[in-house]
Design a protein around this nucleic acid. Structure first.
Lengths: 219, 219
DNA sequence: ATATATTGTTAAAAAATAATTAAAAATATA
DNA sequence: TATATTTTTAATTATTTTTTAACAATATAT
Protein backbone atom coordinates (compact mmCIF):
# COMPACT_ATOMS: atom_id res chain seq x y z
CA UNK A 1 0.00 0.00 0.00
CA UNK A 2 1.29 3.40 -0.95
CA UNK A 3 0.51 5.96 1.70
CA UNK A 4 2.31 8.85 0.02
CA UNK A 5 -0.03 10.87 -2.12
CA UNK A 6 1.22 11.90 -5.49
CA UNK A 7 2.95 15.25 -5.71
CA UNK A 8 1.25 17.57 -8.14
CA UNK A 9 2.94 18.68 -11.34
CA UNK A 10 2.62 22.29 -10.28
CA UNK A 11 4.91 21.58 -7.35
CA UNK A 12 7.39 19.53 -9.33
CA UNK A 13 7.66 22.25 -11.90
CA UNK A 14 8.73 24.69 -9.23
CA UNK A 15 11.45 22.47 -7.80
CA UNK A 16 14.11 23.29 -10.38
CA UNK A 17 13.53 26.94 -9.69
CA UNK A 18 14.07 26.46 -5.96
CA UNK A 19 17.14 24.46 -6.79
CA UNK A 20 18.50 27.25 -8.94
CA UNK A 21 17.89 29.95 -6.36
CA UNK A 22 19.47 27.88 -3.63
CA UNK A 23 22.45 27.25 -5.84
CA UNK A 24 22.81 30.98 -6.32
CA UNK A 25 22.63 31.57 -2.57
CA UNK A 26 25.22 28.89 -2.02
CA UNK A 27 27.53 30.62 -4.47
CA UNK A 28 27.06 33.85 -2.56
CA UNK A 29 28.11 32.06 0.63
CA UNK A 30 24.73 32.56 2.24
CA UNK A 31 24.29 29.75 4.73
CA UNK A 32 20.72 30.18 5.89
CA UNK A 33 17.49 31.64 4.58
CA UNK A 34 13.93 31.97 5.76
CA UNK A 35 10.93 31.24 3.63
CA UNK A 36 10.10 34.92 3.87
CA UNK A 37 13.43 36.11 2.48
CA UNK A 38 13.27 33.51 -0.24
CA UNK A 39 9.73 34.52 -1.07
CA UNK A 40 10.90 38.07 -1.66
CA UNK A 41 13.67 36.92 -3.94
CA UNK A 42 11.56 34.48 -5.89
CA UNK A 43 8.37 36.48 -5.95
CA UNK A 44 6.12 33.82 -4.56
CA UNK A 45 4.48 33.60 -1.16
CA UNK A 46 6.42 32.26 1.80
CA UNK A 47 3.46 30.07 2.48
CA UNK A 48 3.77 28.37 -0.85
CA UNK A 49 7.46 27.76 -0.40
CA UNK A 50 6.85 26.04 2.92
CA UNK A 51 3.92 24.15 1.50
CA UNK A 52 5.94 22.98 -1.47
CA UNK A 53 8.91 21.86 0.58
CA UNK A 54 6.77 20.11 3.16
CA UNK A 55 5.54 17.78 0.47
CA UNK A 56 8.93 16.16 0.74
CA UNK A 57 9.75 16.61 4.41
CA UNK A 58 10.45 19.20 7.05
CA UNK A 59 13.75 20.67 5.99
CA UNK A 60 13.62 23.83 8.05
CA UNK A 61 13.81 24.72 11.67
CA UNK A 62 11.60 27.10 13.62
CA UNK A 63 13.30 30.30 14.54
CA UNK A 64 16.15 29.56 12.15
CA UNK A 65 14.83 28.99 8.67
CA UNK A 66 16.44 26.72 6.15
CA UNK A 67 20.07 25.75 5.91
CA UNK A 68 20.88 26.61 2.31
CA UNK A 69 23.40 23.88 1.62
CA UNK A 70 21.30 21.19 3.25
CA UNK A 71 18.14 22.21 1.44
CA UNK A 72 20.01 22.51 -1.85
CA UNK A 73 21.28 18.97 -1.50
CA UNK A 74 17.90 17.64 -0.46
CA UNK A 75 16.23 19.12 -3.52
CA UNK A 76 19.06 17.77 -5.61
CA UNK A 77 18.26 14.31 -4.29
CA UNK A 78 14.52 14.81 -4.74
CA UNK A 79 15.06 15.75 -8.38
CA UNK A 80 17.34 12.77 -8.78
CA UNK A 81 20.30 14.92 -9.77
CA UNK A 82 22.74 12.95 -7.68
CA UNK A 83 23.54 10.61 -10.51
CA UNK A 84 24.44 10.67 -14.18
CA UNK A 85 21.90 10.29 -16.95
CA UNK A 86 22.55 9.06 -20.47
CA UNK A 87 20.67 10.79 -23.24
CA UNK A 88 20.50 10.31 -26.96
CA UNK A 89 19.47 12.90 -29.50
CA UNK A 90 17.13 11.72 -32.21
CA UNK A 91 17.21 14.18 -35.06
CA UNK A 92 20.50 15.93 -35.69
CA UNK A 93 19.07 19.18 -37.02
CA UNK A 94 19.50 22.66 -35.63
CA UNK A 95 18.06 22.13 -32.22
CA UNK A 96 19.51 18.66 -31.81
CA UNK A 97 22.97 19.96 -32.57
CA UNK A 98 22.52 22.95 -30.32
CA UNK A 99 21.67 20.67 -27.42
CA UNK A 100 24.73 18.51 -28.03
CA UNK A 101 26.85 21.65 -28.02
CA UNK A 102 25.31 22.92 -24.81
CA UNK A 103 28.18 22.21 -22.48
CA UNK A 104 26.29 22.99 -19.28
CA UNK A 105 24.39 19.75 -19.51
CA UNK A 106 27.45 17.66 -18.90
CA UNK A 107 28.36 19.65 -15.80
CA UNK A 108 25.04 18.61 -14.35
CA UNK A 109 25.47 14.97 -15.21
CA UNK A 110 23.41 14.86 -18.38
CA UNK A 111 25.57 13.00 -20.87
CA UNK A 112 24.61 12.81 -24.50
CA UNK A 113 25.98 9.54 -25.76
CA UNK A 114 24.83 9.50 -29.37
CA UNK A 115 22.96 11.34 -32.08
CA UNK A 116 20.78 9.62 -34.67
CA UNK A 117 19.67 10.98 -38.00
CA UNK A 118 18.69 9.87 -41.48
CA UNK A 119 20.71 12.48 -43.32
CA UNK A 120 23.75 10.82 -44.98
CA UNK A 121 25.62 14.09 -44.78
CA UNK A 122 25.41 14.04 -41.00
CA UNK A 123 25.94 10.33 -40.41
CA UNK A 124 29.53 9.59 -39.41
CA UNK A 125 30.10 13.15 -38.30
CA UNK A 126 31.06 14.02 -34.77
CA UNK A 127 29.56 16.86 -32.76
CA UNK A 128 31.64 17.79 -29.75
CA UNK A 129 32.89 14.24 -29.61
CA UNK A 130 29.45 12.72 -29.98
CA UNK A 131 29.01 10.54 -33.02
CA UNK A 132 26.06 10.81 -35.39
CA UNK A 133 24.70 7.40 -36.35
CA UNK A 134 22.21 6.23 -38.90
CA UNK A 135 18.78 5.78 -37.35
CA UNK A 136 19.01 2.15 -38.45
CA UNK A 137 21.57 1.66 -35.72
CA UNK A 138 19.36 3.04 -33.01
CA UNK A 139 17.69 -0.18 -31.91
CA UNK A 140 21.00 -1.87 -31.43
CA UNK A 141 22.43 1.09 -29.56
CA UNK A 142 19.47 1.44 -27.21
CA UNK A 143 19.47 -2.25 -26.43
CA UNK A 144 23.19 -2.35 -25.69
CA UNK A 145 23.58 0.94 -23.83
CA UNK A 146 21.60 2.39 -21.02
CA UNK A 147 19.53 5.24 -22.40
CA UNK A 148 17.58 7.18 -19.82
CA UNK A 149 16.13 9.84 -22.04
CA UNK A 150 15.64 10.33 -25.75
CA UNK A 151 15.67 13.90 -26.95
CA UNK A 152 13.27 14.06 -29.86
CA UNK A 153 14.13 16.81 -32.29
CA UNK A 154 12.76 15.36 -35.46
CA UNK A 155 10.00 16.39 -37.85
CA UNK A 156 6.41 16.08 -36.71
CA UNK A 157 5.72 13.34 -39.20
CA UNK A 158 8.29 10.92 -37.83
CA UNK A 159 8.24 11.68 -34.13
CA UNK A 160 5.36 9.41 -33.09
CA UNK A 161 6.70 6.32 -34.77
CA UNK A 162 10.20 6.82 -33.44
CA UNK A 163 8.91 7.46 -29.94
CA UNK A 164 6.88 4.27 -30.05
CA UNK A 165 9.94 2.33 -31.11
CA UNK A 166 12.10 3.84 -28.40
CA UNK A 167 9.47 3.10 -25.77
CA UNK A 168 9.25 -0.49 -26.90
CA UNK A 169 13.00 -0.76 -26.55
CA UNK A 170 12.80 0.41 -22.96
CA UNK A 171 13.46 4.14 -23.03
CA UNK A 172 11.46 5.64 -20.17
CA UNK A 173 11.80 9.35 -20.83
CA UNK A 174 11.06 11.43 -23.89
CA UNK A 175 12.13 15.05 -24.00
CA UNK A 176 9.96 16.03 -26.88
CA UNK A 177 10.85 19.03 -29.03
CA UNK A 178 8.80 17.76 -31.96
CA UNK A 179 5.57 19.59 -32.51
CA UNK A 180 3.23 16.69 -31.82
CA UNK A 181 1.68 15.10 -28.78
CA UNK A 182 2.99 11.64 -28.12
CA UNK A 183 0.78 8.85 -26.82
CA UNK A 184 3.00 6.72 -24.62
CA UNK A 185 2.47 3.93 -22.11
CA UNK A 186 2.00 5.33 -18.65
CA UNK A 187 5.41 4.30 -17.39
CA UNK A 188 7.03 6.42 -20.08
CA UNK A 189 7.27 10.10 -19.26
CA UNK A 190 6.99 12.76 -21.91
CA UNK A 191 8.12 16.29 -21.27
CA UNK A 192 7.23 18.63 -24.08
CA UNK A 193 9.17 21.65 -25.23
CA UNK A 194 6.84 23.14 -27.77
CA UNK A 195 8.73 26.24 -28.81
CA UNK A 196 6.16 27.45 -31.28
CA UNK A 197 3.41 27.18 -28.66
CA UNK A 198 5.55 29.08 -26.21
CA UNK A 199 6.13 31.88 -28.67
CA UNK A 200 2.44 32.03 -29.51
CA UNK A 201 1.44 32.52 -25.89
CA UNK A 202 4.02 35.26 -25.66
CA UNK A 203 2.49 36.99 -28.65
CA UNK A 204 -1.01 36.65 -27.24
CA UNK A 205 0.08 38.32 -24.04
CA UNK A 206 1.86 41.13 -25.83
CA UNK A 207 -1.27 41.87 -27.82
CA UNK A 208 -3.38 41.67 -24.68
CA UNK A 209 -1.26 44.33 -23.00
CA UNK A 210 -1.40 46.49 -26.09
CA UNK A 211 -5.17 46.24 -26.21
CA UNK A 212 -5.48 47.17 -22.57
CA UNK A 213 -3.32 50.21 -23.10
CA UNK A 214 -5.36 51.29 -26.08
CA UNK A 215 -8.62 50.89 -24.22
CA UNK A 216 -7.22 52.87 -21.30
CA UNK A 217 -6.18 55.69 -23.61
CA UNK A 218 -9.62 55.68 -25.12
CA UNK A 219 -11.19 56.62 -21.79
CA UNK B 1 -14.06 50.62 -17.81
CA UNK B 2 -12.94 47.18 -18.85
CA UNK B 3 -15.73 44.69 -18.41
CA UNK B 4 -13.82 41.73 -19.79
CA UNK B 5 -12.20 39.72 -17.08
CA UNK B 6 -8.65 38.61 -17.68
CA UNK B 7 -8.19 35.24 -19.28
CA UNK B 8 -6.13 32.89 -17.16
CA UNK B 9 -2.72 31.71 -18.27
CA UNK B 10 -3.87 28.11 -18.11
CA UNK B 11 -6.34 28.84 -20.87
CA UNK B 12 -3.94 30.84 -22.99
CA UNK B 13 -1.38 28.08 -22.78
CA UNK B 14 -3.87 25.68 -24.27
CA UNK B 15 -4.77 27.87 -27.22
CA UNK B 16 -1.77 26.99 -29.37
CA UNK B 17 -2.59 23.35 -28.87
CA UNK B 18 -6.16 23.86 -30.07
CA UNK B 19 -4.79 25.80 -32.96
CA UNK B 20 -2.47 22.97 -33.90
CA UNK B 21 -5.16 20.31 -33.72
CA UNK B 22 -7.55 22.39 -35.77
CA UNK B 23 -4.82 22.94 -38.32
CA UNK B 24 -4.34 19.21 -38.54
CA UNK B 25 -8.07 18.66 -39.01
CA UNK B 26 -8.13 21.30 -41.70
CA UNK B 27 -5.33 19.52 -43.52
CA UNK B 28 -7.32 16.31 -43.32
CA UNK B 29 -10.27 18.11 -44.93
CA UNK B 30 -12.48 17.69 -41.90
CA UNK B 31 -14.96 20.53 -41.96
CA UNK B 32 -16.73 20.18 -38.63
CA UNK B 33 -16.03 18.78 -35.21
CA UNK B 34 -17.83 18.52 -31.90
CA UNK B 35 -16.23 19.26 -28.58
CA UNK B 36 -16.69 15.60 -27.77
CA UNK B 37 -14.75 14.35 -30.78
CA UNK B 38 -12.05 16.90 -30.20
CA UNK B 39 -11.84 15.93 -26.56
CA UNK B 40 -11.10 12.34 -27.57
CA UNK B 41 -8.35 13.43 -29.91
CA UNK B 42 -6.78 15.89 -27.52
CA UNK B 43 -7.27 13.92 -24.35
CA UNK B 44 -8.99 16.63 -22.40
CA UNK B 45 -12.64 16.93 -21.38
CA UNK B 46 -15.20 18.27 -23.82
CA UNK B 47 -16.35 20.50 -21.04
CA UNK B 48 -12.98 22.15 -20.80
CA UNK B 49 -12.83 22.73 -24.52
CA UNK B 50 -16.18 24.47 -24.50
CA UNK B 51 -15.29 26.43 -21.42
CA UNK B 52 -11.97 27.51 -22.89
CA UNK B 53 -13.44 28.61 -26.18
CA UNK B 54 -16.32 30.43 -24.56
CA UNK B 55 -13.85 32.73 -22.90
CA UNK B 56 -13.50 34.32 -26.29
CA UNK B 57 -16.95 33.89 -27.75
CA UNK B 58 -19.47 31.37 -28.93
CA UNK B 59 -17.87 29.84 -31.95
CA UNK B 60 -19.98 26.71 -32.14
CA UNK B 61 -23.53 25.90 -32.90
CA UNK B 62 -25.88 23.64 -30.98
CA UNK B 63 -26.58 20.36 -32.69
CA UNK B 64 -23.74 20.98 -35.14
CA UNK B 65 -20.48 21.53 -33.33
CA UNK B 66 -17.69 23.75 -34.53
CA UNK B 67 -16.78 24.63 -38.08
CA UNK B 68 -13.12 23.70 -38.23
CA UNK B 69 -11.95 26.39 -40.61
CA UNK B 70 -13.89 29.12 -38.87
CA UNK B 71 -12.68 28.13 -35.42
CA UNK B 72 -9.13 27.77 -36.69
CA UNK B 73 -9.19 31.28 -38.02
CA UNK B 74 -10.80 32.68 -34.92
CA UNK B 75 -8.09 31.19 -32.72
CA UNK B 76 -5.51 32.47 -35.13
CA UNK B 77 -6.91 35.96 -34.63
CA UNK B 78 -7.14 35.51 -30.86
CA UNK B 79 -3.48 34.53 -30.73
CA UNK B 80 -2.63 37.47 -32.94
CA UNK B 81 -1.18 35.28 -35.65
CA UNK B 82 -2.79 37.23 -38.44
CA UNK B 83 0.16 39.54 -38.74
CA UNK B 84 3.94 39.45 -39.01
CA UNK B 85 6.24 39.84 -36.00
CA UNK B 86 9.82 41.03 -36.04
CA UNK B 87 12.18 39.29 -33.68
CA UNK B 88 15.83 39.74 -32.87
CA UNK B 89 18.12 37.15 -31.39
CA UNK B 90 20.40 38.34 -28.62
CA UNK B 91 23.18 35.84 -28.16
CA UNK B 92 24.37 34.05 -31.26
CA UNK B 93 25.38 30.81 -29.60
CA UNK B 94 24.06 27.33 -30.22
CA UNK B 95 20.46 27.92 -29.43
CA UNK B 96 20.34 31.37 -30.94
CA UNK B 97 21.68 30.04 -34.21
CA UNK B 98 19.35 27.07 -34.13
CA UNK B 99 16.37 29.38 -33.84
CA UNK B 100 17.54 31.50 -36.75
CA UNK B 101 17.87 28.35 -38.80
CA UNK B 102 14.44 27.11 -37.82
CA UNK B 103 12.64 27.79 -41.09
CA UNK B 104 9.15 27.06 -39.77
CA UNK B 105 9.07 30.34 -37.91
CA UNK B 106 9.04 32.36 -41.04
CA UNK B 107 6.13 30.39 -42.47
CA UNK B 108 4.13 31.49 -39.46
CA UNK B 109 5.09 35.11 -39.78
CA UNK B 110 7.85 35.24 -37.20
CA UNK B 111 10.71 37.05 -38.91
CA UNK B 112 14.11 37.23 -37.33
CA UNK B 113 15.63 40.48 -38.48
CA UNK B 114 18.98 40.51 -36.71
CA UNK B 115 21.29 38.66 -34.38
CA UNK B 116 23.47 40.37 -31.79
CA UNK B 117 26.56 39.01 -30.09
CA UNK B 118 29.81 40.10 -28.51
CA UNK B 119 31.97 37.45 -30.16
CA UNK B 120 34.14 39.06 -32.87
CA UNK B 121 34.23 35.76 -34.73
CA UNK B 122 30.47 35.86 -35.18
CA UNK B 123 30.02 39.57 -35.84
CA UNK B 124 29.67 40.27 -39.54
CA UNK B 125 28.66 36.72 -40.28
CA UNK B 126 25.35 35.87 -41.83
CA UNK B 127 23.08 33.07 -40.69
CA UNK B 128 20.48 32.13 -43.24
CA UNK B 129 20.60 35.66 -44.53
CA UNK B 130 20.37 37.24 -41.11
CA UNK B 131 23.30 39.40 -40.16
CA UNK B 132 25.12 39.13 -36.84
CA UNK B 133 25.84 42.55 -35.36
CA UNK B 134 27.92 43.73 -32.47
CA UNK B 135 25.79 44.23 -29.38
CA UNK B 136 26.95 47.84 -29.44
CA UNK B 137 24.72 48.33 -32.43
CA UNK B 138 21.65 46.98 -30.72
CA UNK B 139 20.30 50.22 -29.32
CA UNK B 140 20.44 51.91 -32.68
CA UNK B 141 18.83 48.93 -34.38
CA UNK B 142 15.99 48.63 -31.89
CA UNK B 143 15.24 52.32 -32.06
CA UNK B 144 15.19 52.38 -35.86
CA UNK B 145 13.40 49.11 -36.52
CA UNK B 146 10.26 47.71 -35.07
CA UNK B 147 11.22 44.87 -32.77
CA UNK B 148 8.31 42.98 -31.29
CA UNK B 149 10.21 40.31 -29.44
CA UNK B 150 13.79 39.79 -28.30
CA UNK B 151 14.92 36.21 -28.08
CA UNK B 152 17.37 36.05 -25.22
CA UNK B 153 19.87 33.26 -25.59
CA UNK B 154 22.78 34.70 -23.70
CA UNK B 155 24.63 33.69 -20.57
CA UNK B 156 22.90 34.03 -17.23
CA UNK B 157 25.24 36.77 -16.13
CA UNK B 158 24.36 39.18 -18.93
CA UNK B 159 20.72 38.44 -19.53
CA UNK B 160 19.20 40.74 -16.91
CA UNK B 161 21.12 43.82 -17.94
CA UNK B 162 20.43 43.30 -21.61
CA UNK B 163 16.74 42.69 -20.96
CA UNK B 164 16.53 45.91 -18.98
CA UNK B 165 18.13 47.82 -21.81
CA UNK B 166 15.83 46.29 -24.38
CA UNK B 167 12.77 47.08 -22.29
CA UNK B 168 13.90 50.67 -21.89
CA UNK B 169 14.21 50.92 -25.66
CA UNK B 170 10.65 49.76 -26.07
CA UNK B 171 10.78 46.02 -26.68
CA UNK B 172 7.59 44.58 -25.21
CA UNK B 173 8.26 40.86 -25.40
CA UNK B 174 11.14 38.76 -24.12
CA UNK B 175 11.39 35.14 -25.11
CA UNK B 176 13.85 34.15 -22.46
CA UNK B 177 16.07 31.12 -22.94
CA UNK B 178 18.62 32.38 -20.42
CA UNK B 179 18.58 30.57 -17.14
CA UNK B 180 17.51 33.50 -14.97
CA UNK B 181 14.27 35.13 -14.01
CA UNK B 182 13.86 38.58 -15.44
CA UNK B 183 12.22 41.39 -13.53
CA UNK B 184 10.47 43.51 -16.11
CA UNK B 185 7.93 46.34 -16.06
CA UNK B 186 4.43 44.98 -16.19
CA UNK B 187 3.80 46.01 -19.77
CA UNK B 188 6.72 43.83 -20.87
CA UNK B 189 5.91 40.17 -21.23
CA UNK B 190 8.44 37.48 -20.44
CA UNK B 191 7.97 33.95 -21.64
CA UNK B 192 10.57 31.60 -20.24
CA UNK B 193 12.00 28.54 -21.91
CA UNK B 194 14.10 27.05 -19.17
CA UNK B 195 15.41 23.93 -20.82
CA UNK B 196 17.38 22.72 -17.84
CA UNK B 197 14.32 23.04 -15.60
CA UNK B 198 12.26 21.15 -18.12
CA UNK B 199 14.75 18.32 -18.24
CA UNK B 200 14.92 18.20 -14.46
CA UNK B 201 11.18 17.76 -14.11
CA UNK B 202 11.37 14.99 -16.66
CA UNK B 203 14.03 13.24 -14.60
CA UNK B 204 12.01 13.64 -11.43
CA UNK B 205 9.03 11.99 -13.04
CA UNK B 206 11.08 9.14 -14.45
CA UNK B 207 12.47 8.41 -11.00
CA UNK B 208 9.01 8.68 -9.49
CA UNK B 209 7.69 6.03 -11.87
CA UNK B 210 10.70 3.83 -11.16
CA UNK B 211 10.16 4.12 -7.44
CA UNK B 212 6.49 3.26 -7.76
CA UNK B 213 7.36 0.19 -9.76
CA UNK B 214 9.91 -0.93 -7.22
CA UNK B 215 7.50 -0.46 -4.34
CA UNK B 216 4.82 -2.42 -6.20
CA UNK B 217 7.21 -5.29 -6.82
CA UNK B 218 8.14 -5.27 -3.17
CA UNK B 219 4.55 -6.07 -2.15
C1' DA C 1 -42.72 17.23 -36.51
C1' DT C 2 -39.91 14.64 -33.66
C1' DA C 3 -35.83 12.70 -32.04
C1' DT C 4 -31.03 13.57 -31.72
C1' DA C 5 -26.96 16.07 -31.18
C1' DT C 6 -24.41 19.52 -29.20
C1' DT C 7 -23.63 23.99 -27.66
C1' DG C 8 -23.29 27.80 -24.02
C1' DT C 9 -23.93 28.44 -19.34
C1' DT C 10 -24.61 27.57 -14.63
C1' DA C 11 -23.47 24.77 -10.69
C1' DA C 12 -20.49 21.58 -8.20
C1' DA C 13 -16.19 19.52 -7.24
C1' DA C 14 -11.44 19.49 -7.05
C1' DA C 15 -7.08 21.54 -6.89
C1' DA C 16 -4.00 25.10 -5.96
C1' DT C 17 -2.70 28.99 -3.40
C1' DA C 18 -2.73 32.05 0.51
C1' DA C 19 -3.49 33.10 5.33
C1' DT C 20 -3.56 31.78 10.07
C1' DT C 21 -2.26 29.50 14.23
C1' DA C 22 0.49 27.12 17.51
C1' DA C 23 4.82 25.22 18.71
C1' DA C 24 9.73 25.37 18.61
C1' DA C 25 14.09 27.47 18.36
C1' DA C 26 17.06 31.36 18.44
C1' DT C 27 18.26 35.64 20.30
C1' DA C 28 18.12 39.44 23.48
C1' DT C 29 17.70 41.18 28.10
C1' DA C 30 17.91 41.50 32.98
C1' DT D 1 22.15 32.13 33.85
C1' DA D 2 17.31 32.41 33.58
C1' DT D 3 13.59 34.51 31.36
C1' DA D 4 11.20 37.12 27.93
C1' DT D 5 10.82 38.25 23.22
C1' DT D 6 11.22 37.49 18.47
C1' DT D 7 11.60 34.67 14.58
C1' DT D 8 10.09 31.20 11.84
C1' DT D 9 8.54 26.74 10.71
C1' DA D 10 4.92 23.06 10.16
C1' DA D 11 0.37 22.24 10.11
C1' DT D 12 -4.18 23.70 9.67
C1' DT D 13 -7.78 26.40 7.80
C1' DA D 14 -9.66 29.54 4.41
C1' DT D 15 -9.86 31.42 -0.13
C1' DT D 16 -9.37 31.48 -4.85
C1' DT D 17 -8.82 29.36 -9.16
C1' DT D 18 -9.42 25.71 -12.23
C1' DT D 19 -11.70 21.80 -13.83
C1' DT D 20 -15.52 18.87 -14.40
C1' DA D 21 -20.32 17.86 -14.57
C1' DA D 22 -25.13 18.91 -15.39
C1' DC D 23 -28.63 20.85 -18.01
C1' DA D 24 -31.66 23.94 -20.55
C1' DA D 25 -31.80 25.96 -25.10
C1' DT D 26 -31.39 25.40 -29.86
C1' DA D 27 -30.05 23.71 -34.30
C1' DT D 28 -29.77 19.63 -37.29
C1' DA D 29 -31.31 15.60 -39.41
C1' DT D 30 -34.67 12.39 -40.59
Amino acid sequence: MNSERKISSAVINRLPRYYRYLGDLLESDITRISSKELSTKMNITASQIRQDLNNFGGFGQQGYGYNVEYLYNEIKKILGLDRVYNLIVVGGGNIGQALVNYTNFEKRGFVITAVFDVNPRLIGMTIRGVEVYDVDKMEEFVKNNKVDVAILTLPRSQASKVANDLASWGVKGMWNFSHVDLAMPEDVIVENVHLTDSLMTLLYKINEVEMEENSNNGN
